[in-house]
């Protein structure tokens, strides 16, 4: 399966979904004009990925400085897919990374964590500028 790589723009995050290492990375800003449209290939890719028969663990690293309400809806959909995959036997760990001063991103992480049932959801704080 081919990896999915989407380069970041001012209002859309960088996306790197690696089928080999089984590490997914979403980072940057997310307020595209049409979030459902922007994330459609991401959701399709993830769905296809979990259709493959493998139960090796998957790690998802998310660092979003800001995302709008329609991106939030799509992220919820992605977490639901991951949750289902986890209950079907593929362990999924999500690392929700936020800058120490970004309380909003921290709270958003907490709100996703509350809504998720199965996957390991870690909220990780970082201090410097590195994403």
């Amino acid at each position: 399966m081919e990896n999915l790589i989407i380069e970041a723009t001012k209002s859309a995050p960088s996306i790197i979904l690696n089928a080999e290492t089984r590490i997914f990375v979403i980072s940057g800003e997310s307020y595209p004009e049409n979030a459902a449209k922007f994330y459609k290939p991401v959701i399709d890719w993830i769905n296809n990925f979990f259709d493959q028969q493998s139960s090796e663990p998957v790690t998802v690293n998310i660092t979003l400085h800001y995302f709008n309400s329609s991106s939030s809806k799509v992220l919820m959909d992605i977490f639901d897919i991951l949750d289902t995959a986890h209950s079907n036997g593929t362990p999924v760990t999500v690392n929700w990374r936020h800058h120490a001063e970004n309380d909003t991103a921290f709270e958003c992480g907490e709100e996703f964590k509350e809504e998720i049932e199965q996957i390991d959801f870690n909220i990780v704080e970082f201090l410097d500028e590195e994403p």
């Binding site: 307020y31 004009e33 800001y66 709008n68 309400s69 800058h99 001063e101 970004n102 309380d103 909003t104």
Partner: peptide, 16 residues
């Protein structure tokens, strides 16, 4: 940062 993110967030939602 918490204030500027709120301003930015409402700006984006209202503008969109």
């Amino acid at each position: 940062m918490s204030v500027s993110l709120k301003v930015f967030s409402i700006f984006v939602e209202q503008m969109q």
